[in-house]
């Protein structure tokens, strides 16, 4: 990896952490409503995988889809951060024009195909995106990020089976943070090693890796993405990770011990990557402090400002986007007598 890339990735991960921290504050200030699920702790997974995916090419991007913990996946795929924040503020300028909120960020222009609140629902949608790409003869792949909790839904089993039978180019990224909302994986899942649930059962290659180390994620994601694109087959990659905050804002984290949290905090992907870069002499502590300051300024003076100052959707437009707003009268017009 090039030195410039290392510094860029560190900056991105710090940005993602600070972005989510600022969401937390905005939620406390009641600027953000509804449910809010923050990604802090898991940054290396989305950052690393999506750095290896095809992004930045608009409609040629790989398709990305995920669950409700979706802000960072959207931004890393290419959704402007200020639009994501505006969405959280419920504004017309938001990623989904204020109709979706935190759990439903979409940016179709970047092939970010959405965040979904039904656990496990993105599995089949992702396979369908892959089917579409394959049918059109492009070499795009679909990347589906979901947590370990989603793997106990029927859609996991049904979709992995079909993705394998039909050779669909989809990468299933399992972000195993050990908890299905507030229930530990050992208490909910007969086989806690997620990657073992797919290889013999569905004839899909799979592997498990450290999701707290950005360099590991980059290396393993590249191999998996290359495989899916080249072989036109699904792959299942599991990253062991941890969320530093609760499942959502209403979560008091009573289901896990402080010792466990401290143990995982030692593996903080940002702290450890920072340490490595300092050790390698690429960056100093002061540089990181300056970087953090610059990011905070950007978040406050650009992103939050944009979200604050943007208009809300018009109530007169409440019923837009339910159905096609400009349907062809041949299919839905007045009935010919």
């Amino acid at each position: 990896m090039k030195d410039a890339d290392k510094k860029r990735l560190l900056r991105e991960m710090i940005f993602f952490r600070r972005f989510e921290d600022r969401c937390f504050e905005a939620y406390m200030e009641r600027k953000i409503g509804g449910f809010l699920h923050l990604y802090s702790g898991q940054e290396a997974v989305a950052t690393g995988v999506l750095d290896m995916a095809r992004t930045g090419q608009g409609e040629k991007n790989d398709y990305v889809i995920t669950g409700y913990r979706d802000h960072i996946h959207a931004i890393k795929t290419g959704a402007p951060a200020r639009e994501v924040m505006a969405e959280l503020f419920g504004k017309e300028t938001g990623s989904s024009k204020g109709r979706g909120g935190s759990m439903h960020i979409f940016d179709a222009s970047q092939n970010f195909m959405g965040g979904y609140a039904l656990v496990g629902q993105p599995f089949p949608l992702a396979a369908g995106l892959a089917m579409g790409a394959k049918h059109k003869g492009t070499d795009q792949i679909a990347i589906c990020f979901l947590g370990d909790g989603a793997n106990n839904q029927g859609t996991f089993h049904e979709t992995l089976n079909m993705a394998s039978v039909w050779n669909l180019p989809v990468l299933f990224v399992c972000e195993n943070n050990g908890y299905a909302i507030g229930t530990h994986i050992d208490r909910s899942t007969a086989q806690p090693e997620q990657y073992k649930r797919v290889d013999t059962a569905y004839n899909i290659k799979s592997s498990q890796h450290d999701g707290m180390n950005i360099e590991t994620v980059l290396k393993e994601a590249k191999k998996a993405i290359d495989y899916v694109r080249k072989e036109q087959k699904p792959y299942f990659i599991e990253f062991m990770t941890y969320r530093f905050r609760g499942h959502s804002m209403s979560d008091a984290k009573g289901y896990r011990t402080r010792d466990e949290e401290l143990e995982w905090e030692q593996r903080d992907p940002i702290k450890n990557f920072s340490k490595n870069l300092i050790k390698e002499g690429l960056i100093t502590e002061q540089d990181i402090k300056a970087m953090e300051k610059e990011i905070d300024d950007e978040i406050e003076n650009d992103i939050i400002k944009f979200a604050e100052e943007s208009p809300e959707p018009k109530v007169e437009e409440l019923t837009r986007y339910v159905l096609d707003d400009n349907p062809d009268p041949r299919w839905v017009g007045p009935l010919q007598k």
């Binding site: 089949p124 369908g128 089917m131 979709t159």
Partner: peptide, 15 residues
């Protein structure tokens, strides 16, 4: 549920 979902996903990209 899932083959309908796969159809829906495919429809999102033009099928």
């Amino acid at each position: 549920n899932s083959y309908t979902g796969i159809g829906i996903g495919a429809s999102m990209v033009g099928m």
